[in-house]
Amino acid sequence: MKNKGITLFLIILAVIIVTSVTFDYYFSKPDELPENPYALNINLLEKIDNSKILYTESRNFGLNFTEPSGICFSEGQFFIVGDQKMQIIDTFGKLKGEFKFDQKPTCVYVSTQNIFVGFRKSVSVLNREGLKMNEWNSFSDSSVITSLAEKSGILFVADAGKRIIRKFSLAGNPLGVIEGKTGNDQIHGFIIPSPYFDIAFNEDGELWVVNPGKHALENYTVSGDLRTWWKATSVRIEGFSGCCNPAHFAFLPDGSFVTSEKGTVRIKVYKPSGEFLGVVAAPSRFKENSAAPDLATDNEGNIYALDMDKKMIRQFVKKEK
């Protein structure tokens, strides 16, 4: 036979072509592909030692909201805002009332006399029967109201858009703002990269504010002077991760902090001093990269988290030893 060498060469080439195609075909199946070499492994952060988890989930209240946004617990009732409405639900899950608004509320705070509902650029004051008593519209266009708290006749409005806390009398008169700027080098105003800016009063009547950009919780006097603060930055469970956490917090009856984080969602408790105490809910309980649940607590120390994805209130109770 002529050209034996060439024929052999050609056959080898044909074999190479066929194998290349076959290999490519089989190894580009989704489960045959190589692992992502550039994976950013944040799953490791989500694995949490069971001994650190101090709470267990006991009840869920499925809500009739498409987009819940805030929760407050007062006198045995949940006040939940979202969509264009507020619902009052008792601890048995009975719906006690529903109020409709013409815009989307962002947060709610309930005092003994009033219900305060925050919208993006306004605050409505309702009495406990749900009748509107007052509405304050004197906010800036770039305002984003994210949290409300009232103490001795002064309503504190956290405005994440303007990065300040505004004070109002219940009659609606502005009483000044807290900018959080002090001479102290450590703190330079509120750093709020995303619309999460929570404030609350503890049992002792101290105003606490989240400074999410600093991963800090700061205690101010009513006049706006920084009294004390603590911070915890870490991707590990002990601290707060990301650019703007904790997103929400609440106080337990003993003055401990309950915090919730967005992105890698987790709920934790810190001692009143700011020392890490334990985990309420690990990230595995939430959808990946979701919104931070708003928090509420009751007098017995139960924690209620408003899950924005599952649209329900999730009750966490302390594990029994």
Partner: peptide, 15 residues
């Protein structure tokens, strides 16, 4: 959309 944060989750390693 950027928060211009000091601690940037996209720039810095998680830990």
């Amino acid at each position: 959309l950027c928060g211009y944060c000091d601690l940037c989750g996209g720039y810095l390693k998680p830990d």
